[in-house]
Design a protein around this nucleic acid. Structure first.
Length: 480
RNA sequence: GGCCCCAUGGUCAAGCGGUCAAGACAUCGCCCUUUCACGGCGGUAACGGGAGUUCGAUUCUCCCUGGGGUCACCA
């Protein structure tokens, strides 16, 4: 049987990293096995629906390179792929389930339901309406009393299934509640819709978070009553923000879009989250989507929660940045240059060439180039460098020399700057590093810059370089 | 609280009865170098606790502890 997996997000306007990982794993599993990946929109909760959220989902999936074979925009014969458009289907199946004894009408109002709470505030429905006679039901139905349809779960017995990642899960029936299948607004709950849709859409493997691990037996009970074949399940461990909190938007934790805005590459994000909760057989961690498809296996899925480490994702992103062609690098970098001090003033390419090899995320750009506009008093300890054996004193000598040299250079270019500076070092018995280090600091007043002394001087130009060197020299003398 | 699940360095993680317990991020040190960065090399750092089973447990079983999930007309 052809493998069919699905990703079924709710259109809430956000794409959590955890959700995206579920989509990714579902996609990887399907593609690894030559199967199809289906996109279904679960919008049965009208209160959470956000306009434009479906387009947003398409956009994220596209950026991530996760392409669906079927979905609202790609009919594969199992549509509609939006749950709100399937309302009649659910009702029809709910009625069938009632006929088969797997569900029943419930007319209890909120007040009665609330009264069922135990000392811990936990409510468990008492099957009150299961005992209604056919006449009572008909009467209430025809007189328009609001109702829901509940699942009829056996009061005793054990139900079990084998999860592909967690193994055998057993839950006593008495621990499960007769949950609502069809809400009073006529729409199904997730609990029902997912069962009906997965079956109708011929989903063979269901991947989702562990929060469904213990409610899956309820779904299986429905499959059984319907006489449908149960799908295979793969529950995925949660992604955590720290040891005790899940990553979630409720606490303002970053989602996919935020990371893109921060200057992460989609490929790097996808690569990183693939590794959060799954490990390849090999030790290679930088993997393209197609490499992930090849390598993906259920065995490698972890059972315990994983803490999201932005640091490691940054490192990975840095590797991706370095492998970009210069053109692609600039394409991503432009908007960050645009929001930096060099906008409209300097050649982006010049900075880009220096920066591609040293930044990890694009948002580092503005601060990396800030030195070009921001220059003033700085701490002279910046001139201290143990290995180079430099300090403010050496700097005074070097800067004095550098000023003379710069003044003397007619064609102010990198080669000339470098050769003259280095040449002078030999005459004076100074180390190259001493000269270049102090000049770099003297030119920028920064501990870290996008390039060395030569590049900085070249970018600043002769006049500005001279001005800054003079300023730095003055600074040193003032504090001497 | 009931039920379900999980437990290797700070983090992600290999491991699936016998290993000096991989690798990666971070961190530290060294090298390279035109600072930082990049790159290269190396160091520090882990099996939560207690009983079993076994000739031998990180690995199997049980208990404890810790953590997560779930108990909605949300998904």
């Amino acid at each position: 049987m052809k493998v069919r997996t699905r990703f079924a997000p709710s259109p809430t306007g956000f794409m959590h990293i955890g959700n995206l990982r579920t989509a990714l794993y579902s996609y990887l599993y399907a593609k690894h096995n030559g199967g199809d990946f289906i996109l279904r929109i679960e919008d049965t909760d009208r209160e959470r629906y956000v306009d434009g959220a479906v387009e947003f989902i398409y956009s994220i999936l596209k950026q991530a390179g996760i392409e669906h074979d079927e979905g609202p925009d790609k009919d594969g014969g199992c549509g509609p792929y939006v749950q709100s458009e399937r309302k009649d289907i659910y009702l029809q199946y709910a009625k069938e389930l009632i006929k088969k004894g797997g569900a029943y009408y419930c007319f209890c109002d909120k007040e009665r339901l609330d009264s069922l709470a135990d000392e811990n505030g936990i409510k468990k429905y008492d099957k009150h309406c299961l005992n209604l006679s056919r006449e009572e039901i008909e009467q209430k139905l025809s007189s328009g009393v609001p109702y829901v349809i509940r699942q009829n779960i056996p009061t005793e017995g054990m139900t079990e299934y084998t999860d592909m990642v967690y193994g055998t899960i057993r839950v006593p029936c008495e621990d499960m509640e007769d949950g609502v299948l069809i809400k009073s607004d006529g729409l199904p709950t997730y609990n029902f819709a997912n069962v009906v849709d997965d079956h109708l859409m011929r989903i063979t493997h269901v991947m989702r978070g562990t929060e469904y691990l213990s409610s899956t037996p309820k779904y299986n009970l429905m499959y059984d009553v319907f006489g449908w074949e149960r799908p295979q399940y793969m529950h995925l461990p949660p992604i955590m923000k720290d040891a005790q909190h899940k990553l979630s938007k409720r606490y303002g934790d970053a989602n996919f879009e935020d990371f893109i805005d921060k200057g992460f590459l989609p490929e790097a994000i996808v690569n990183y989250i693939a590794l959060l909760g799954w490990a390849p057989k090999s030790n290679e961690e930088k993997m393209s989507l197609s490499e992930l498809v090849d390598a993906f296996d259920v065995d490698g899925i972890s059972h315990s929660p994983a803490i999201f480490d932005e640091n490691k994702m940054k490192w990975l992103n840095g590797r991706y940045i370095r492998e970009l062609s210069f053109e692609d690098f600039m394409k991503h970098a432009v908007k960050f240059f645009d929001s930096s001090v060099i906008k409209d003033k300097y050649d982006y390419n010049k900075f880009g060439k220096l920066l591609q090899g040293r930044i990890e995320i694009f948002s580092e750009i503005p601060s990396a180039v800030a030195f070009i506009e921001e220059f003033g008093e700085y701490d002279l300890s910046l001139f201290e460098h143990k290995k180079m054996k430099t300090d403010a004193k050496i700097a005074e000598v070097c800067l004095t020399e550098a000023i003379k040299i710069f003044e003397d250079i007619k064609d102010f270019n990198e080669t000339e700057i470098h050769d003259r500076l280095v040449g002078r070092c030999e005459e004076l018995g100074l180390k190259k590093g001493q000269m270049l280090f102090t000049v770099r600091v003297g030119l920028t007043g920064c501990a870290s810059t996008p390039g060395g002394a030569v590049e900085m001087a070249d970018i600043l130009g002769k006049d500005e370089s001279l001005r800054r060197l003079a300023f730095s020299l003055g600074l040193i003398k003032k504090h001497a």
